[in-house]
Design a binder for these strands. Structure first.
Lengths: 341, 341
DNA sequence: CAAAAAAGTTTACGTGTGTAAAATTCACGA
DNA sequence: TCGTGAATTTTACACACGTAAACTTTTTTG
């Protein structure tokens, strides 16, 4: 490394022979300067080590190149995966994504929003906690920052992108009813609107098929879905109080716990004659293909959801002001047939 | 909300009746101003909506309040959990943690380090990719930024904090040998020093107990450990080429895949007479308690590792210059006995 | 109650970049 | 070769806060 260090744009202007305002233009958008100038600058960048100071850059910009991402629980691989994809899309578009996790807590969500707001981001993509969110706080945030809401549809922000729960749950209820007993619905007290929508969709689908819906709601709070699925599943199984031998879980993580409960109680899960239970989930969570047996579920279209969310946000950022209507885009998932049901 | 908006510290100084330099002191450390002044300011904060601009704050500080966290793969719940804990420790200490994930790729790790460096952080906590890291790049980073390395011990930075693989693997090898057949060791090509250390520790422990070590290395790259465990495990089982019916996996995620493979091949996993395989892991991964059967493993002391990492970093930041020796702190895990072995 | 110590105010300058306006230079076609 | 519009340079100011020094006020101490 013979590259010399350069401390600021002024110095880099001297050594590169390009004026500072032009350099400023270049760093904001390399395409905006003449090809010959660009190659001069790039040549100098090889020679000298220099990167514009991020704080100074954003200090005096009207519109920052920062994009805030707020999720309820980053340790959930679903969100980890979503965030990963969103980050990529942002970086490709020349933005600087910055991730916050609420860790399931209202206070931390509020803190994240406040910190984010003081970063004056160009826009934000948020998946609110849902029921636990401080809606006033979230609303105030969205009034200052262009926001696309995803995954959990609370009525704030300029747009929503998520999954078509009605369609998805319909898919799997149809499948389960066609291939065996009508399912009961296994859920915990809903942490966000998705859980509610899924229960409602289950009830609708069952009634459409002429079955009596049977909802089993177990106790449990927080984001330890597997733990709740295991503990409450164990209780239900050992007391024989499951209303059906086919169980549709509100999400895959709950199903992971329930499968573990069944295994530990010596019940075989799956489609065969020698199986005592059929278990299905929703989300096609990254873990779901590794359960024993592998979990039958409905996928969410991760790629479409992230791409559209980011896309809509960029439209908002480019378009400037907010529009009249608040579009809600829902993507349909697909049935993922594995061995558990 | 009747709170009026205030745009900068100057304006807030006017409305609060406190001079700007004092306000500056207050926002850096509320304890540094007199109680009466503090309450005046806090009262005004109730009345007026104001938060200092983060970019302006960090723009002209010698030492930023930013702490960079770089992990190889954030979608891995192990790192998600670690990051969660680190973030908390930082926030409690009044720092601003900012997380980057390399997503398993060298280029992204380099990008993250470069971006982080331009943020001029007070310090950094990094878990390098390991074998895939661009060591020169990482080294250059650590020469500019006070860095504590954790999890994966590559020889850079001011200190290392991690797990005592030798002790941990010894624990579980001892346990497995006491309670049944001596284990073989199931691994994929190592992605970081931990994997190597664990294999070596396995060999040492086996020789100490008078057994011939049997290492089974399967193909596979990247961070899809479960997938590799499942696919290669299926191959090994169906071809009958496992050298022992007791299998110690290099980490829990590999074990998750292997358990799934065994299940799909109709082999029962566990300790009983009717079981064909015993499978054990390492890490006590968040998923491990939900496998079928639950996974016997060695825990890592997450809390100790994160607390000590952050603690050492704060010492470095306070202490200023770098010291002579490069301390390596290793924490011992505990045997976690479940049903799989 | 006076002196000392602590805290706050005033004043002034530094930070590294964005950005606007006017002046100059360049590239390209006629 | 010249004219034209586009690109670049020059110049100058803005941004919001950190920080230092000299001075003033408040609090503490003996």
């Amino acid at each position: 490394m013979s590259r010399q260090k350069v401390n600021n744009m002024e110095e880099f202007a001297k050594v590169s022979g390009i004026s500072r305002p032009t350099l400023s233009k270049f760093f904001n958008d390399p395409q905006s300067v003449r090809t010959s100038t660009r190659s001069k600058i790039e040549f100098a960048l090889e020679e000298y080590e220099y990167r514009p100071n991020i704080f100074a850059i954003n200090h005096n910009r009207k519109s920052t190149k920062t994009i805030g991402i707020v999720v309820p629980y980053l340790a959930d691989p679903f969100f980890a995966e979503i965030v990963r994809k969103i980050e990529r899309h942002c970086i490709e578009a020349g933005f600087w994504p910055i991730v916050f996790s609420a860790h399931g807590e209202q206070q931390l969500e509020n803190d994240a929003l406040a910190t984010l707001q003081s970063l004056r981001p160009a826009g934000a993509l948020i998946a609110p906690l849902g029921k636990r969110s401080d809606l006033d706080c979230v609303k105030r945030f969205t009034e200052e920052v262009q926001t696309v809401v995803f995954d959990s549809n609370v009525d704030v922000g300029e747009a929503f992108v998520g999954s078509d729960n009605i369609h998805n749950v319909g898919l799997i209820v149809d499948y389960l009813c066609e291939t065996g007993d009508a399912p009961c619905f296994f859920e915990m007290p809903p942490v966000n609107p998705n859980a509610n929508k899924r229960r409602e969709a289950y009830v609708t689908a069952m009634e459409r098929l002429g079955h009596a819906p049977k909802v089993v709601q177990v106790k449990g709070t927080g984001w330890n879905f597997e733990k709740i699925g295991l503990e409450e599943g164990t209780r239900l199984i050992s007391s024989g109080s499951l209303p059906s031998e086919t169980i549709l879980c509100s999400n895959d993580r709950l199903a992971v716990g329930l499968i573990a409960a069944a295994y530990q109680q010596g019940l075989r899960v799956g489609n065969g004659n020698n199986c005592a239970l059929r278990i299905a989930g929703h989300d096609d969570h990254p873990w779901s293909q590794f359960t024993c047996p592998p979990l039958t579920t409905v996928s969410q279209n991760y790629e479409a959801i992230t791409e559209r969310s980011v896309g809509m946000l960029f439209e908002l950022i480019d378009g400037g002001g907010s529009r009249q209507e608040r579009p809600e885009v829902l993507f349909e998932g697909k049935l993922v047939l594995r061995a558990s049901a």
